[in-house]
Computed example of a mutant assay.
Amino acid sequence: MTERTILVVGGSAGIGLEIARDLIAGGDRVILTSRSAETAARVAADLGPAATGLAVDVSEPEQIVAALADVPAIDGLVLGAIERDANTIRDYSIERARRLITLKLIGYTEVIHALLDRLQPSNETGIVLFGGRAKDAPYPGSTTVSTINGGIEGLMNTLALELAPIRVNALHPGIVGDSPFWAGKPAAVLEGYQSRTPGGELATMTDIVDAVRFLLFNRGVSAHSLNVDRGWRIT
């Protein structure tokens, strides 16, 4: 048993939930968040006594300090809260763009700021920021998403410098074929993406969880952006 405590922001569903489940299986305690207190409590109860649920909405950064007030000292932080949005330049929505930019670039930063007194100042402590491959693999409507995920790299670099010896890394998933978002897509859609990877397979949630664990716990890795996409961009 490691007896580490890891906070997983966005850990109540999808890939975040798989991360929380894996950490608990490895002997860690997990604090997972959802925008809904009810959802956070229910998911934590399902995961067992090593999990605690907490309501935090990172798209409302002014509320983050109060929401995290009861978090104890932690040994690691995964910032995986995301939202998806198609926002083309021809039909640009300022409101939707502002929400996503606030959620990731301001919300992520404010979570770390709020927890500075509880993040152990050691290279044993890791922070993982979730970006995405849209930063350099854009698609129609990805203007905001691509911009934000590119910004995650800049955020990672400055935080890794300011917070050292705490390590800060970024994870950029490609299409995760068995994730809740993608698993329900028509087979033809997924096959089109699969055909563009060298091995003919899409990344899985297990791939993402393994990558998070590496970035979170490997003491020799900081200020590193890791793409997990089964080599999609080389074809």
Results as ranks from 00 to 15, higher is better:
Met1Trp: 15
Glu3Cys: 09
Thr5Gly: 12
Val8Arg: 00
Gly10Tyr: 00
Ser12Lys: 00
Ser12Thr: 03
Ile15His: 02
Leu17Ala: 06
Glu18Met: 05
Ala20Met: 00
Asp22Leu: 01
Gly26Thr: 11
Asp28Arg: 08
Arg35Pro: 07
Ala37Asn: 07
Ala41His: 06
Arg42Cys: 03
Val43Phe: 05
Val43Leu: 04
Ala44Ile: 11
Gly48His: 06
Gly48Met: 12
Gly48Thr: 03
Ala51Asn: 01
Thr52Lys: 04
Leu54Cys: 10
Leu54Phe: 06
Ala55His: 06
Ala55Cys: 07
Asp57Met: 00
Ser59Asn: 08
Pro61Ala: 09
Ala66Ser: 15
Leu68Ile: 03
Leu68Val: 07
Asp70His: 14
Asp70Cys: 07
Asp70Trp: 06
Ala73Tyr: 15
Ala81Phe: 02
Ala81Ser: 12
Ala86Asn: 05
Thr88Gln: 13
Ile89Gly: 12
Asp91Val: 13
Ile94Glu: 15
Arg96Cys: 05
Ile101Thr: 09
Ile101Glu: 07
Lys104Gly: 07
Lys104Met: 11
Ile106Phe: 13
His113Phe: 09
Ala114Leu: 05
Leu115Tyr: 04
Leu116Pro: 00
Leu116Thr: 13
Asp117Asn: 10
Asn123Glu: 14
Asn123Arg: 15
Gly126Thr: 02
Leu129Val: 01
Phe130Thr: 10
Phe130Asp: 03
Gly132Thr: 10
Arg133Ser: 05
Asp136Phe: 14
Pro140Cys: 15
Pro140Arg: 12
Thr143Leu: 14
Glu153Gln: 12
Glu153Tyr: 13
Asn157Ala: 13
Thr158Met: 07
Ala170His: 09
Pro173Cys: 08
Val176His: 00
Asp178Pro: 03
Pro180Cys: 05
Pro180Lys: 06
Gly184Phe: 03
Ala187Gln: 13
Val189Ser: 02
Val189Asn: 07
Glu191Leu: 13
Gly192His: 09
Arg196Gly: 05
Pro198Cys: 10
Leu202Ala: 00
Thr204Cys: 08
Thr204Gly: 07
Asp207Cys: 04
Ile208Phe: 14
Val209Gln: 01
Val209Gly: 02
Asp210Gln: 11
Val212Asp: 00
Phe214His: 05
Leu215Met: 06
Asn218Ser: 04
Ser225Val: 10
Asp229Cys: 05
Gly231Phe: 05
Arg233Phe: 13
